[in-house]
Amino acid sequence: MSFHFDLLSRGYDQFLGRTLGAPDMEYWRTALGLPVRGRLLDAGGGTGRVSAALRPDVEQVVIVDCSQGMLRQARKKGNMALVRADVARLPFIDASFERALIIDALHHFPLQKESIAEVARVLAPGGLLVIEEFDIRRWGTRAIALAEKIVLMGSRFPTPEEIRHMLKEAGFSVLEIQKGKWNSLLFIAKK
């Protein structure tokens, strides 16, 4: 799957900027309870389109992605730690982050349950995880899912109930589920 994102990486931010507009940073700061002392993990963070702008609100932003091309684009934004890894096998010690973020990426993780469990492992007690994921119950998301299937991306869009279950199974308390932007749902969970 990183092959697809390596190919898309150069124009990824520009494409999303034209189709979705600039990220609403107050929206993300509020959801994550920022500012906070400590580190922010952007799991499956790609180019750091959102997390790069959150850098002033935390001590360090760490982007983990399996695509070298996406991380290469993130590097251009500067001042973030970039790690090429599978989110299901994070190379960090337990409880080493205060906040974690998964934006429009969970459906790309081959091991979704294991990835959420890994994020739980590296998140400190009381830490927050925010997941924004397309709602597969919406027709627009179904069109995206079909397109990703046609191009062999291997995506699997979990239902909101599946996401809630994976979070609870990993030890999170789901604080809130709200309608996100562009056919998405926002899950806010506390460890």
Rank of each mutant, 00 (worst) to 15 (best):
R10M: 05
Y12S: 04
T19Y: 09
P23T: 09
P23D: 04
M25S: 01
M25F: 15
E26M: 04
Y27N: 09
W28Q: 01
W28H: 06
W28M: 00
R29I: 09
R29W: 09
T30L: 07
T30I: 10
A31T: 01
P35F: 12
V36Q: 14
G38I: 06
L40A: 03
L40Y: 03
L40C: 02
L40T: 01
L41I: 03
L41M: 11
D42V: 01
D42K: 02
G44V: 00
G44S: 01
G45A: 10
G46S: 09
G46L: 09
G48E: 01
R49E: 03
S51E: 04
A53W: 08
L54M: 11
V58D: 11
V62N: 09
I63C: 06
I63K: 00
V64Q: 00
D65V: 03
D65N: 08
S67V: 01
Q68I: 04
Q68D: 13
G69D: 11
M70A: 05
Q73S: 00
A74L: 05
R75F: 08
K77T: 06
K77G: 05
G78I: 03
N79K: 15
N79F: 13
M80E: 10
V83Y: 07
R84P: 02
R84N: 12
R84H: 02
D86W: 11
D86V: 02
A88K: 13
P91W: 07
F92S: 05
I93N: 12
D94M: 03
F97I: 10
E98G: 15
A100R: 08
A100S: 12
A100C: 03
L101H: 07
L101F: 14
L101G: 09
I103K: 02
I103M: 13
D104E: 11
F109R: 09
F109T: 05
P110H: 02
E114T: 05
E114Q: 15
E114F: 02
S115R: 01
S115N: 03
A117T: 05
E118Y: 01
R121N: 10
V122Q: 07
L123P: 13
L123H: 07
L123F: 02
L123S: 11
L123G: 13
A124W: 01
G126N: 11
G126V: 03
L128C: 11
L128F: 04
L128S: 14
L129V: 08
L129R: 11
E132R: 12
F134L: 15
D135N: 15
R138M: 13
R138L: 14
